[in-house]
């Protein structure tokens, strides 16, 4: 561990990080929110970021990795600009979710900016099938509509959240 601090967060996010830690009676509680902050800043949760989080909360980097590796939203390898989360749980299953997943996986197989993943129920079953792009909901989909939405993010017609769903990149 680098005792002088890796200096990973940018200035604004470092201020925010200290505010987050101060919200909790015990600093370790800030691991998840700080990991979201780092992921929105960097587009993934890097070892450097986890080292700085460790310093901010007074734990070892191994403790931070131990916690973060439990949670599927944290991407510990670079995953591109857009995390496309397609639900295939039961309501989406009977209404065409798997076909959307298959279509997007094929279409963006070689696209480094787009990370397509199968996810569990997103709580949008009334408008199934559904997906999220960087945690923005998109509902009432079919394969073509879903692909058009992803393309709109890529071309800038739609503005994406951060990779952890935050507003700041």
């Amino acid at each position: 561990m680098n005792a002088s601090g890796p200096g990973h967060f940018n200035a604004a996010n470092l201020v925010r990080a200290h505010e987050i830690v101060a919200q909790y009676p015990k600093p370790k509680s800030a691991i998840l929110p700080l990991a979201h902050l780092a992921q929105d800043q960097d587009g993934w949760l890097s070892p450097d970021a986890m080292r700085e989080i460790a310093q901010l909360v007074g734990e070892t980097p191994a403790e931070v990795l131990g916690t973060c590796s439990f949670y599927t939203m944290f991407k510990r390898t670079p995953c591109g600009k857009y995390v496309v989360s397609v639900c295939t749980n039961v309501t989406c299953l009977i209404l065409g979710g798997p076909e959307i997943l298959e279509h997007l996986e094929e279409r963006y197989a070689d696209d480094g900016d787009v990370h397509v993943e199968e996810v569990e129920c997103l709580a949008a079953c009334d408008n199934a099938p559904s997906m999220q792009v960087n945690y923005e909901f998109h509902e009432h989909l079919n394969p073509e509509v879903a692909a058009a939405i992803v393309d709109d993010y890529k071309s800038g017609v739609l503005t994406a959240r951060g990779v952890s769903g935050g507003r700041t990149r």
Partner: peptide, 15 residues
């Protein structure tokens, strides 16, 4: 002091 443990995927809900 109360905490709302919000599902991580609910980005709009967080805002």
């Amino acid at each position: 002091l109360a905490f709302i443990y919000l599902r991580g995927e609910f980005a709009l809900g967080y805002e």
